[in-house]
Structure formats: C-alpha cells, structure tokens
Design a protein around this nucleic acid. Structure first.
Lengths: 220, 220
DNA sequence: CTAAATTTGTCCGTATGTATT
DNA sequence: AAATACATACGGACAAATTTA
C-alpha cells in the first residue's frame, strides 16, 4: 500500500466518523503535507482519490471542502460503508440470481454482445489489473442490461463497496491464475445462458459462480 | 486542456486507428517524454488515463502494451433519480422475494416483534398519513431484520425513490379504504410466515402483495 | 543460475500558472 | 492590489519487477 493510499484511508475515516464535517474546510494541501511529513504531490494523489469518490470538493483559490453527502446527487447511503466482504457476498448470493430474470427479459442484442466483448478482453488481459477492469465492465454490462435505473443503482452500490479498501486487498490475495481461468469459464457460461434466454440455467450458473467466489475470498 | 490530457487524446487516436496495434509494446515512458518534450510525470498522467479506460496495460520491469481498440459505448451509471414507479415495481418484484430468504435466516425475535408492532400501529391508524408512516416502518423493520448493511442500503434506496415526487402522488390516488384493509391483511400474513420461518410461503405472499400493489398503482 | 541493465512505481522539492479571497 | 490556495509541470532519486547478458 502506497503512502498516498494510506493517507486516503486515514482521511476517509475522518470523513465517515464526522471528525471532518459536511461543508467544513480542510487544511491546505501544504499544511497536510507538512503535518504528515510527505510531499504535496503525495497529498494531492490521496485527495484526488477522495475527490473521485465524491467525498470532497476542491476549488482553486479557495480550498478543499467536505462534500455534502446524502441529500443531493449520487446517493450512497452511509450504511454501505459498513458493508464487510462477507455481508456483500451474502447479499449478492440473494440478489443476483433474482436479477438474472430481469436481465433475460430486458437484455438487447447489443447488451449481450457487449458482455461477450468484456469476456474476450478479460481473457486477453495480461495483468491482474486489466483483468479486474474487464471483470468490472462485465458486471456493469449485465447491470445495464436489466434496463432498469433502480437495478443499475443497486449494482453501482456493489461497485462502490468493491472499490473500497478491504475488498481490493482480499481480492488481490485470493485471485490466483487458476482461479482466474475458472472465473473466465464461468463468466462465459453465464453469458451464453443469458444469450440463450435460459433463465433457469443462468440462475444456477450465477449461484455457482458466487459460491465459488465466496469460497476463494472468505474460505466459507 | 492540460498537456497530459492532450497527450492522452493523441495516443487514444493512435490506439483507435490501429497505428498502435493490439499487444504491441509502446515506447518507454522516458522515450515518450523525450520525443514529446515533456516530463515523465506528464507522460505518466496521460498513460494513467488510458489505463483506467482499459486501452493499455502496464507491467513493471517490462513495459506498456496495447490492450484493445474499439470501446463499446460505456453508459454512465444510472442514478436512482431516474427511477419511475414502474421501474421500481419491476425491481421490487425481482428483489424482495429473494430478500425474504435472508430475513428468515437472520431475523431475531426482536425483529419479528417489531414487525408485529408496526402492523398493529398501522391497523389503528386514523389517518392515511399515519398508515403510511407505519407502512414505511414495517418496511424498515423487515429490511433491518436481514442484518446485512448492504441490504439495508438497498432498502434505503427504495425509500428514497418512494419519498420522491411522482410516487407519493400515485400512492395517494391509489389507496382506498378497502385496499388499505387488504394491505393490512397481506402484511399480517407475511409477518406470520416470517415468524414461522416458512420461506416458501413468505416468498409467495411477498410476490402476491407486490403484484397487488402494482395493479392498484399502475393498473398493470 | 547469477548479475547487470531495463522499465514501471513511488516520492520528493521546486517553480509557475490561475482562480479566489 | 496583494495574499492565499489549488492546478500543472519539471527533474531527480530510489524501489520493485522483469528482461537480458
């Protein structure tokens, strides 16, 4: 974990615990650099992450401010932050098989082609990072294939949790080359079942895949 | 537009037009910096953008490689704001029966008592507003009975949508006294099934109730 | 198999530009 | 008009992983 990642984690905690409150102005970048004994470059990298997650806002000439969290814009209820990997897997096991029905009913040919494209790219990926990128893209493609804004935001919540601290660490440790191959096969099979509009098979494959992921991730 | 953004655009064109082909190795960062007359920092910022878009891959000690060319139209994440009543009902019909399993597995005796309490209060409510309050409380109680933070935030999303303009209007017009009585009976039956830990019956009752609500709400 | 060279990853210190106060 | 604060960029250094001699 890099210095900037570490700072990012530290500050995210302050934001979540309310040590830095909504609308409050943070210390200047130079002050933060000074108090933490790092360069301003490093501080900026950490702040950039927080900004991308919508937790802070920055204005030239003015300063860095804590973003208004719940009321406006992209909703991310605070409880999501407390979701552990085990919690998320439990919820995925319950929800995703149910969503398969929606996808099968509403997916267009374009949606299915996009999924297949994601599979191809994931298979050709040379690095773990690239693989995870296309894995995430595949999830997104499936989510959007439901053609339901609410379902889309549920998936977005999942993505948020997965892009958050603990999950990334766990995944890095758990994804071996053999497991990655297995995931690829399972993804392929699922996309095929979806293309065949075979709901029962798709549900079974989804469940199987998630059980597999959970075992690798949590050993349960 | 910053220097790094400009470089990013230039290189994206090369990637998309095939001047840099799949799998090909790009010049090293220092070479790119040299030929474009910029610092390595700037080159790295541009490459970071391309990497995030999945167009290139980087490996320490080896180099930067072309991952792919044509990107399928990646849509922006759907927000909850665009959820229509029909969208929400579709999602509820898919998700809530699935969540019943979680509730049955994880609900405590306190959770079930709280649900029963909500039913009583709803039945004794003298105004439509009071009824809707306890209806919402019942939903909350069921959500929290899953004892899963992620599930809780999904329910919170639902509540957000329902508290939002269009839904309230529709509900006001659709809830007649007879329908309210029917809802109360259905809620009671569901809480009983949950208390009996009878998953199959609870799922069926949930589905039945939601179909009922949808018909009253949308006429579908 | 080992050691050196290569290449990306991270960090620092400094300087200048631009918008706000 | 001056001070403040973020935005961008440069060059140098060392670490970590890979390739090559």
């Amino acid at each position: 974990m890099s210095l900037s990642d570490h700072l990012c984690e530290t500050w995210r905690q302050r934001l979540q615990t309310g040590q830095w409150r909504q609308g409050e102005r943070l210390p200047t970048e130079r002050e933060l650099a000074d108090t933490h004994g790092v360069s301003r470059t490093t501080v900026r990298k950490a702040l950039a992450q927080l900004k991308e997650q919508g937790l802070i806002e920055q204005t030239v000439g003015s300063g860095t401010y804590v973003a208004q969290a719940p009321e406006g814009g992209v909703a991310s209820p605070g409880t999501v932050r407390h979701t552990s990997p085990a919690d998320l897997m439990e919820a995925r096991l319950a929800l995703e098989p149910a969503l398969v029905d929606l996808v099968i009913r509403n997916a267009s040919r374009d949606d299915l082609q996009r999924m297949a494209h994601c599979c191809e790219q994931a298979e050709q990926a040379q690095t773990l990072e690239a693989f995870e990128h296309w894995d995430a893209e595949l999830h997104q493609a499936i989510a959007e294939a439901a053609h339901n804004p609410f379902v889309a935001s549920v998936f977005q919540l999942m993505t948020e949790v997965r892009s958050q601290g603990e999950w990334g660490q766990l995944k890095k440790r758990s994804v071996t080359p053999e497991r990655r191959l297995a995931y690829q096969r399972e993804h392929r099979a699922l996309v095929e079942a979806l293309s065949d509009r075979d709901a029962e098979r798709a549900r079974a494959l989804t469940l199987e895949h998630l059980v597999h992921v959970r075992r690798n991730l949590l050993g349960v």
